Simulated assay, not measured.
Amino acid sequence: MNLALWIVAGLLAVVALTGGITKAFVPREKLAAVRGGGWTAGIGAGSIKALGILELLAAIGLILPAVVGIAPVLVPVTAVCWAVLMVGAMITHGRRGEALYVVVNLVYLVLAALVAWGRFGPGSFAG
């Protein structure tokens, strides 16, 4: 169970890191030109960068607290926050009729829920 939770958290961290770097450092105009980036047209550049920073923090929060052993409870808390972020992403893509991206975000949400459940429960770092 522990290994599976580490793998899932690692995969989510890679997704969050990739998305965070893209949103925080790529100009909005370039994001809008990429497939699936049309959602950026109605959002300010600062908001997109803020989402990118949140995703970068999620990438850190899914791994680092457990690795260093300082406040490992932040791992499941971060997973819950990631799940909430994915709900927002699903709503945004759903409003735009982008069913594929809704499904992708749903998969990320389920994986985050698995990490949260596992790290709050049977695979907790407290035991």
Rank of each mutant, 00 (worst) to 15 (best):
T92S: 08
A58N: 07
I63L: 03
S47P: 03
A112F: 06
L62S: 07
V80F: 02
A66N: 01
L85V: 02
A45Y: 03
L54F: 11
V110C: 12
V77M: 07
Y108F: 15
G94W: 04
V110E: 15
Y101D: 14
N105E: 01
G69L: 09
V68G: 13
E55D: 15
N105C: 13
R95P: 12
A45L: 04
V68W: 13
A45E: 01
Y108I: 05
L51K: 12
M90H: 00
V107E: 00
V67S: 01
E98V: 06
G94Q: 00
I70A: 06
V104N: 12
A66Y: 11
G44Q: 01
L51R: 07
N105L: 08
R95S: 15
A112H: 10
A50V: 10
L56P: 13
H93Y: 05
V75K: 11
A113T: 10
A89Q: 10
A50S: 04
L54M: 09
V103S: 11
N105S: 14
H93V: 06
A99E: 04
L100N: 10
M90L: 08
A89Y: 00
L57R: 06
A112E: 02
G69K: 07
V102E: 09
I63P: 12
Y108H: 13
V104K: 14
A89W: 11
P65A: 12
G46R: 08
C81A: 15
G97K: 02
G88K: 00
I91W: 14
R96Y: 12
G97Y: 12
I53Q: 04
S47C: 10
V73N: 08
V80S: 07
G52H: 00
V87I: 11
A89K: 03
L62P: 03
G52W: 05
M90G: 06
I48E: 03
K49H: 11
G52P: 10
R95K: 15
E98K: 03
